[in-house]
């Protein structure tokens, strides 16, 4: 096998594994990672086929920007929400399988037809016409495919503007300044500062140790709520507290 064959079989296998992982993963974040993995392997294949520019742009744009955006959204929307596996569209499976198979047949026939009938000049010749891969792509984009290229970019900008329009909320009242926010915080009557810290004693100073108020009673706020809810707060030995009081009063 030549070097190119090795690259193809290794990266191609990885790309297919990644694609399967995308479909079979239960967690949305794992699916997104499999897609990123597939895209990196596709980029390797592009580079092996003398298209280094396409390969790099594939990684930068798809892995670096698009999938990162996906991850961002997934992480914002829900970390622990177990993804619903209930089908919302009823009876979609059979049409989906049929259409998927149809697409696969079309792709195989189309690509196979191209491979058999098209006249190929070879990658080296294709890249050397304009003095290099980057120069060749640049010439094609800015001459033969200029309108398609510009139309695509106009479409993308329109989509971005549309998304901004949909997500935009008109602000009816001016945004509260830091000063106004701090005033509101004080006026609300809720304790504005930090909660009291846990108690610090000779034997304990962990977060489960309650602080004592001046009269010897426990300050409920000094222990985090989850610990209280779990019943993990440490009991205070009131006998000792009383002893201290006695010593103090003497």
């Amino acid at each position: 096998m030549s070097g190119e064959d090795w690259v193809f079989w290794i990266s191609g296998t990885f790309a297919v594994i990644g694609a399967l992982g995308l479909v079979l993963s239960r967690k949305a974040v794992h699916s997104a990672l499999w897609v990123a993995f597939t895209m990196i392997n596709l980029a390797v294949l592009y580079i092996a086929n003398a298209a280094p520019f396409l390969g790099m742009v594939q990684v930068i744009v798809y892995t670096g920007a698009v999938m990162m955006l996906f991850l961002f959204v997934l992480m914002v929307v829900g970390v622990d929400s177990s993804d619903s596996l209930i089908e919302t569209l009823k009876g979609q499976r059979i049409p989906a399988i049929v259409l998927g198979l149809g697409l696969a047949v079309l792709l195989v026939v189309g690509v196979g037809n191209g491979l058999v009938n098209a006249e190929t000049v070879g990658l080296v010749e294709a890249n050397s016409v304009d003095g290099g891969n980057v120069e060749g792509i640049a010439r094609l984009i800015f001459t033969d495919y200029l309108i398609a290229f510009e139309a695509t970019s106009a479409l993308l900008i329109t989509a971005a503007l549309g998304a901004m329009m949909l997500a935009h909320r008109e602000r009816w009242i001016p945004r509260a300044t830091q000063e106004e926010l701090s005033k509101a915080r004080f006026r609300s009557g809720v304790h504005p500062g930090n909660l009291p810290t846990p108690g610090v004693y000779a034997r304990h100073n962990a977060v489960d140790t309650p602080a004592l108020l001046p009269d010897g009673s426990i300050s409920e706020e000094s222990i985090p709520r989850p610990l209280q809810a779990r019943g993990d707060a440490r009991a205070v030995d009131h006998h000792e507290v009383n002893e201290i009081k006695e010593v103090d009063s003497q």
Binding site: L33, P52, F53, G64, M75, V134
Partner: peptide, 27 residues
């Protein structure tokens, strides 16, 4: 190679995955 500066950019964009995933995976 002809696009090696883009290569650095591409590798950097993969490198951020380490940080983002570390943040997510820590639970």
């Amino acid at each position: 190679f002809p696009v090696s500066v883009l290569y650095v950019l591409a590798i950097a964009s993969i490198g951020i995955y380490g940080i983002v995933l570390a943040g997510w995976a820590s639970g």
